[in-house]
Write a protein that binds this DNA or RNA. Structure first.
Length: 262
DNA sequence: ATAGGCCTGGAC
DNA sequence: GTCCAGGCCTAT
């Protein structure tokens, strides 16, 4: 369940399912987490927080479950007592009397306290979250122009969670199309107008994706975020009619419109 | 900046 | 079986 908007949507669903009801079942697959099961039983969940693609489940006793879904982890919500049949590896189960949340396949899971949370290697280095409503275009613009980010090509910069948290490959591709920029460009070389367009797109595109309930059509068949270039190689750009191209940048698939992005 | 490895599931 | 993927870490 990959990029920031999808993780945040999952967090919303988990929060709605668990509410503030006490936990009646706590189960972890990993042996080193099993010792925490009794301590969490009867506790409640204070909040599901996201920091980019990391999900933090804060329990009422002060512990926090850190989980990162990488490319493959997935959360499910089911009525308690109706665990689905699946080939996926169950890693976490938390339940109250009504609802059960299940985390499958994720391998990057830890239980943290206030101290270890602050010291966590990923959380320590992530930048501001693009879905944080207090993050403004002005702040993004200043960050783009600050050292060392100003010298870095967008191909790598937009995937770097230390720059901004929550962007991933489809958002990188879509943001650069919306801003009309090439992945080889650097902030230090942009005009004022280009900087405005980029900082605007960096917030607007992920926020629109979140509003549209993410990009994952398999899970949200109705209305998903619409890609303009991602996975559209060989098709016509809806803005200029040019044929969309595909390549590899920062060892990830990259898509662009040669007519719109120069 | 880039390559390779890790982890897992789905498409083929 | 093979390859690819929306991620991220480490080594170079």
């Amino acid at each position: 369940m990959p990029e920031g908007p999808e993780i945040r949507r999952a967090a919303d669903q988990l929060a709605a399912a668990m509410g503030d009801k006490p936990l009646t079942d706590v189960w972890f697959a990993f042996p080193q987490l099993k010792t925490y099961e009794p301590a969490l039983l009867g506790e409640t969940i204070n909040a599901f927080e996201t920091r980019g693609k990391a999900l933090l489940t804060h329990f009422s006793n002060g512990l926090t479950l850190y989980s990162h879904n990488q490319l493959y982890g997935v959360w499910r919500v089911v009525p308690t007592g109706t665990e689905p049949q699946t080939n996926r590896q169950l890693r976490v189960r938390l339940a109250n009397v009504d609802q059960t949340i299940l985390l499958y396949s994720a391998s990057d899971i830890a239980l943290l306290n206030a101290d270890t949370l602050a010291a966590h290697p990923f959380l320590q280095r992530v930048g501001p979250d693009v879905l944080d409503v207090t993050l403004t275009e002005q702040t993004v613009r200043e960050r783009l122009l600050s050292a060392p980010f100003r010298r870095r090509q967008f191909s790598g910069l937009l995937l770097d969670q230390a720059f901004l948290a929550g962007l991933g490959n489809y958002l990188r591709v879509e943001i650069l199309w919306h801003a009309g920029l090439l992945a080889q460009h650097r902030a230090q070389d942009l005009s004022e107008t280009q900087l405005d367009r980029l900082s605007q797109a960096m917030l607007a595109v992920p926020r629109l994706s979140y509003k549209m309930r993410g990009s994952m059509k398999k899970y949200h068949a109705e209305a998903a975020f619409r890609f303009e270039v991602f996975h559209r190689q060989g098709k016509k750009c809806r803005r200029c009619g040019s044929i969309i191209e595909k390549g590899v940048l920062s060892s990830r698939p990259f898509y662009w419109c040669p007519g719109c992005q120069k």
